[in-house]
């Protein structure tokens, strides 16, 4: 296991938050973690530096995408015992609504886990989960732990 990815620590919300805080860019945009009933949700409080369109104003597409990508990475490390962080192979982001200058949430799902690649999707929403502001689907490269008895 990599030195900074401690499987026992990431089982708790505080441990996951500490892990996210150790990812500089996730920390830079301000990603938080909430674990409710075993469900992992990423929370992005509003901050001025995350704005892409100051006129409306609306969040930067890259920020929303980074939130979705971070949600995927956390979901993968929680569900799949791996040696390293998953690496994005490709992502498709659909921007569904203008992202308002308010708190934004994201939740990721592993659609299919292969031996080397996971097919994932994620959604970001604001006040109403039924009205997502952006959706991601993509593929992430896994680094599964090689068991000694394999």
């Amino acid at each position: 296991m990599s030195a900074f990815l401690n499987r026992d620590e990431i089982k708790t919300e505080a441990g996951l938050q500490a892990f996210v805080d150790s990812i500089p860019y996730a920390n830079f945009i301000g990603v938080g973690v909430r674990k409710v009933g075993g469900e992992l949700t990423c929370v992005l409080p509003f901050k001025d530096g995350n704005v892409g369109n100051p006129m409306l104003p609306a969040l930067h597409g890259g920020v929303v995408s980074a939130l979705l990508e971070t949600a995927v990475i956390l979901q993968v490390i929680c569900e799949i015992d791996s040696e390293h962080l998953p690496k994005p192979v490709n992502i498709n982001i659909d921007y569904l609504r203008s992202a308002k200058p308010v708190e934004t949430y994201a939740r990721a799902y592993i659609t299919k886990q292969g031996r080397r690649v996971a097919n994932v999707r994620a959604e970001a929403w604001q006040a109403d989960r039924a009205r997502p502001v952006a959706a991601l689907h993509g593929h992430f490269l896994l680094a599964p732990r090689i068991k000694s008895d394999d």
């Binding site: 990599s2 900074f4 500089p24 860019y25 830079f28 971070t70 962080l85």
Partner: peptide, 14 residues
């Protein structure tokens, strides 16, 4: 500040 993987120093995909 834009690193995504503190193990390697590689910039975040985001």
């Amino acid at each position: 500040r834009f690193v995504g993987n503190p193990e390697t120093g590689v910039i975040h995909g985001g």
